[in-house]
Write a protein that binds this DNA or RNA. Structure first.
Lengths: 210, 210
DNA sequence: GCAGAACAGAAGAGTATGTTCCGTCTTTCC
DNA sequence: GGAAAGACGGAACATACTCTTCTGTTCTGC
């Protein structure tokens, strides 16, 4: 099988660690943007030196994460633009896509913790341009509530990414719930879609106070 | 005039400082819950010892802030319950009240930074009970979208309190904007209210990246 | 005029965290 | 078969941060 890299061997372990570290870093910094780098190592199940072998400093790691997150955002936006179906459904899928991917958590929330890169600027401009085109197309179809601007979408995504309740998966589910509410309100004419997933329970809310 | 305390005198200055310190603490910790205590002193324009004269420790100050915030929440909820007018309008005013007061910023966001007080527990139970009654009344009038639970309201308020853009006043204005969107969607039947205040501008958004 | 409340801000003490470094193990090349 | 080198774990180091205490000073109220 072409996919099966030899399970043993230092090189194979290194390749696996590459992914382990990036995934751990993403998870840790999404949960707490100011987390110490030791927390990333622990979560990845590796030593600290495995991190420093790959990234010269914490700042470089953060920049890498933000860069990946921005590129993910771009790919979601491009997929949405390629979708030539119903304009509203296409727009809604775009919003669901960026909220599900939670790209805000690793771009906006990490801002200020690293010095932006030239490539980051390029990607940011590209992302903005895609935003404009999606918005223009949706407006042209007259399926979005008048008065809603591009920047509104960014702030809505940012609000939703602030929901952190329990599990990462449960958080996503709840974000979908409130995104559904907002989208119903953004749609022209307004709609009433079924709310996905169960409402939060009082127990879920109060557990965080410990 | 009973209200006019002598403008000079150590005692008068102390009374003024009481307020200055609480207001500064609120503003500072709302902006950054993990801010150092020196930032509060600086913002209040007083020395650090003026803080420690009033509160034995940082934790006590935080507890005081949270306690005040919770009481503010309760008073808003009580006012909403006392309002016997249109059920939906009353509910909407309640939501606007707690979002405007931004009580989440000084209760939920400070959680875990101090050991809860017995009085806090009492207040929390009282707040919860008021929530239940407001929700029951609104449901009984059948003006709220089916499937919406009490805990939804808490999470919605929490989302909105995550919006921090520029000025404190501007943030409030934007929170009202998105609260209006959500309330339109929560209402049964759905409504389309005029959006208050201008949409965020791209410049406002990008300024934060510095 | 003076005793003391109230204060500003520097100094102290302890903690948290980014980064380096050393000893170890495994692989791979001769 | 042996050894050089890549990769790693985690302790050790240096440092920056921040809560709290403490000292010297000012100004009020009597």
């Amino acid at each position: 099988m072409a996919e099966t890299a030899p399970m043993s061997g230092r090189k194979a372990q290194a390749a696996r660690n590459d992914k382990l570290i990036l995934e751990a870093a993403r998870a840790v910094f999404v949960a707490d943007p100011s987390a110490p780098i030791a927390a990333v190592a622990e979560r990845a199940g590796v030593g600290i030196s495995a991190l420093y072998r790959r990234y010269p400093s914490k700042e470089d790691l953060l920049r890498k994460l933000a860069s990946d997150g921005l590129r993910l955002y771009i790919s979601v936006a491009e997929a949405a633009l390629a979708d030539e179906g119903d304009p509203w459904e296409s727009f809604a899928r775009f919003m669901h896509g960026i909220v599900d991917a939670d790209t805000n958590a690793i771009t906006r929330n990490l801002a200020g913790m690293f010095k932006p890169d030239e490539g980051l600027y390029q990607d940011a401009m590209r992302a903005y341009e895609l935003n404009v085109r999606i918005m223009e197309r949706t407006r042209a179809a007259e399926v979005i509530r008048p008065g809603v601007e591009i920047a509104d979408l960014a702030l809505i995504a940012e609000q939703l990414s602030a929901i952190k309740l329990g599990d990462e998966e449960r958080s996503r589910e709840l974000r979908r719930r409130y995104l559904t509410l907002i989208l119903d309100s953004l749609r022209n004419p307004p709609a009433t879609s079924p709310l996905p997933g169960p409402a939060p329970t009082d127990e879920e809310l109060s557990r965080r106070w410990g």
